[in-house]
Nucleic acid binder design. Structure first.
Length: 561
RNA sequence: UGCCCGAUGGUGUAACUGGCUAACACGUCUGACUCUGAAUCAGUAGAGUCCAGGUUCGAAUCCUGGUCGGGCAACCA
């Protein structure tokens, strides 16, 4: 009953900044964040961290979070991505209400900001070529040189900029630049580009514009316009913060606080958009939603739940140091969640026939099986039991090593939900000597509720009735990359050498009949085989099950020793 | 070679902002229980906080100097 005053979870550094601001009444105690993806690709688990961070911190402080599409580069962006992002964020369980915004909503306002800077003498139109701009910028250790166009008059700049807007000049011929300092130690402050000319169709504004603002000129101002208080972004934008603040100050508008955090890295996983695109385009995977992809849609199809991903984001925490999270942690999160919700089913992947010699030939019994042992309210189902069964090949060993609890000659084992059987013999293939079937006898008194049902045996194995089994397709997934840090793979290098050839194995299994009615998206635990999700995209007659994750298996460790 | 940022068990995150034996989670290993060896429960090992100095009664926390890692020279975001 006694509640300790100590909070369950300590505050992360972002929370501390927010609480500090709140103490200083910096934003009247308001917390307003935003998740600002560029619609140029699909969201992945790294974005999920950012989404949880932005929506989560807002919620924690009774604030709100906007969804804003950072669509300032028409040549890279597409509505396809907008739609997928919207769907993925919603699926993760976050609600942005009516606050769905686009940087392109603010193009007119941003344009006015630009004219304002020109009039203030803080921006100029530059005619230098791409190459020359690069040359004039200097290097990381050497100061740059000022553009020869830097001292144009306000009138000339204004005239030129307006003509840029009206479409008078071709792509690449002119840009608008801020007038800051070509000798600044921060390269981004060396007269950064504000606007460039792109005669391209924008997915929202069509051909209304032919000049588009750069990220730096758009992001902070968009934050400001939306009255954002805390603009949470990844570490690589740290060096952009002085510029972010510079625009806000020169424009004299509401000043949000940019806060940077370290992006998520996962072992055996690539996260960069370029590489993910390479996997899709190179045909290494079957699309953005391939269950081996770390994309949100891939994880969803694989069988991950929003809850498990949110929990994962919570557990990994947030800080500024580079980190590589073991995928085992992600897998732990999904096992934990699926253990609670997945229905148990019996299925055999590598069948071995088991014949119960003393079981009546034509008898079929309907055995009660619980759907989830931890949640009785999940109910029970009936499974047909008969004389001939399939068991898993690995559940029988002719010459068992010590500590092998499963079936072996002379040994007793329980058939899950059914009887205790004793192995009495093996039938082998005449030529090859391979085990064709295993024979056993059963004790009719050992069924649940029977007098001998409490008899202790070391092992329990799963089975399925030969006569009644249905066939199902199972897709067994492993990590796509063998390498623990595949992000190190050089740009342009072929993925082939690094891809795990066993990352996808398609097999047919024999399953209990009730799996016939499996519906898309449903989650099952096939005893000992792992957690599975019914593939939503399959057009196959038989059920198709994607393995989300294997069960932890301590036997394989024992066996190795 | 310049600027910015970071460094705590195998991995990640904490440590009431200078104060108790450096905590928690995952992973590891061990045991109990079980109609699966899963789950559950209990327990174990593993860091003295990048290094060297300094301030202090007291430093993971402050100062100085190093070392290592990351980011920055798209008309990408």
């Amino acid at each position: 009953m006694m509640e300790t005053s100590k909070p369950e979870k300590s505050l992360n550094f972002i929370h501390e900044i927010i609480e500090e601001d709140s103490r200083n009444n910096k934003y009247e105690g308001r917390v307003h964040t935003r998740f600002p993806p560029e619609p140029n690709g699909y969201l992945h688990i790294g974005h999920a961290k950012s989404i949880c961070l932005n929506f989560g911190t807002a919620a924690k402080y009774n604030g709100i979070c906007n969804l804003r599409f950072d669509d300032t580069n028409p040549v890279k962006e597409d509505v396809e991505y907008v739609d997928s992002i919207r769907e993925d964020v919603r699926w993760l369980g976050f609600d942005w209400g009516d606050r769905e915004y686009y940087a392109s909503d603010y193009f007119e306002q941003l344009y006015e900001y630009a004219e304002f800077l020109i009039k203030k003498g803080k921006a100029f139109v530059c005619d230098l070529s791409v190459e020359d701009i690069g040359l004039f910028r200097g290097t990381i250790t050497q100061a740059g040189k000022e553009s020869p166009y830097r001292n144009r008059t306000v009138e000339e700049n204004l005239d030129l900029f307006r003509r840029m807007r009206s479409g008078e000049f071709p792509d690449g011929s002119k840009v608008l630049r801020a007038k800051i300092n070509m000798a600044h130690s921060n390269m981004l402050m060396r007269d950064p580009i504000l606007y460039r000319i792109i005669h391209a169709e924008h997915h929202r504004t069509g051909d209304k514009w032919c000049i588009y603002p750069m990220y730096d000129f758009a992001h902070g101002q968009c934050d400001s316009i939306e009255n954002i208080t805390h603009s949470i972004c990844t570490l690589e934008f740290e060096v952009h913060r002085p510029l972010y603040d510079w625009f806000i100050k020169e424009l004299d508008i509401h000043a949000p606080q940019q806060i940077e955090f370290a992006r998520l890295n996962l072992t055996n996983t690539v996260m960069s958009k370029r590489k993910l695109l390479g996997l899709v385009q190179g045909g290494y995977v079957k699309g953005w939603d391939d269950p081996r992809m770390p994309t949100i849609c891939g994880l969803r199809r694989r069988g991950y739940t929003p809850e498990s991903i949110r929990n994962f984001a919570d557990i990994i925490g947030v800080a500024k140091r580079d980190n590589v999270i073991d995928v085992a942690l992600l897998e732990h999160c999904i096992r934990e969640d699926l253990n609670k919700r997945a229905l148990r089913r019996l299925a055999v992947i590598n069948p071995l026939k088991l014949v119960i010699e003393n079981y009546p030939d034509d008898l079929v019994e309907e055995l009660d099986a619980v759907n989830n042992p931890e949640y009785p309210e999940a109910g029970i189902r009936k499974i047909p039991f008969s004389k001939a069964l399939y068991i898993e090949q690995e559940d029988f060993m002719e010459n068992p090593p010590p500590k092998f609890f499963r079936l072996s000659p002379g040994n007793e084992v329980r058939l899950k939900y059914g009887y205790i059987v004793k192995c009495t013999g093996i039938v082998k293939e005449e030529n090859t000597g391979q085990i064709k079937e295993v024979h056993c006898t059963y004790d009719p008194e050992t069924r649940r509720g029977m007098p001998n049902s409490n008899k202790k045996v070391k092992g329990t194995i799963h089975w399925v009735s030969v006569k009644h089994a249905i066939k199902a397709e199972v897709r067994l997934y492993e990590h796509l990359f063998i390498k623990e840090n595949p992000e190190e793979i050089e740009e342009g290098q072929d993925f082939k050498a690094n891809i795990n050839p066993d990352s996808l194995q398609i097999k047919t299994c024999f399953a209990e009949p009730c799996l016939k009615e499996a519906k898309a998206g449903e989650k099952y635990q096939l005893e000992r085989l792992g957690y599975f999700c019914v593939d939503p995209d399959s057009e196959s007659e038989k059920p198709v099950l994607n393995r989300t994750v294997t069960l932890k298996d301590s036997w394989s460790k024992i066996a190795k020793k």
